[in-house]
């Protein structure tokens, strides 16, 4: 399956990666070649094969629903670009 200019822009928007029209053009060729290589998968008969999500076929382990972490807000916010009063700052969302 080829990828077109509009597909690249759509993926870039979904991934929230800023891409100009020109930059998107630059990716069309690369991504098309990658997908062409990937398309070899389509030739394989995989009917009735269960998808393998985990190499050991393990499922997520559960633990008792108990509090195990204590609040370390200041420590973890020390590496944030902008905080005030313990809150992360972002551009105003609601006027």
């Amino acid at each position: 399956m080829a990828i077109e200019h509009a597909d690249v822009l759509r993926a870039a928007h979904l991934a929230r990666v800023g891409l100009s029209e020109d930059e998107a053009t630059g990716y069309v060729d690369d991504l098309s070649r990658i997908l062409k290589m990937v398309d070899q998968l389509q030739a394989v008969d995989t009917q009735d094969i269960i998808p393998l999500a985990h190499p050991l076929d393990a499922t997520q382990r559960l633990r008792p629903d108990e509090v195990t972490e204590h609040s370390q807000r200041e420590r973890f916010q020390a590496c944030a670009p902008a905080v005030t009063d313990g809150l992360y700052l972002v551009p105003r969302v609601v006027e």
């Binding site: 990828i3 870039a12 990666v17 990716y27």
Partner: peptide, 12 residues
């Protein structure tokens, strides 16, 4: 970016 775009596209 290339891999993010491929991954986002194939999961979309």
């Amino acid at each position: 970016k290339r891999r993010i775009l491929i991954g986002t596209h194939t999961l979309s």
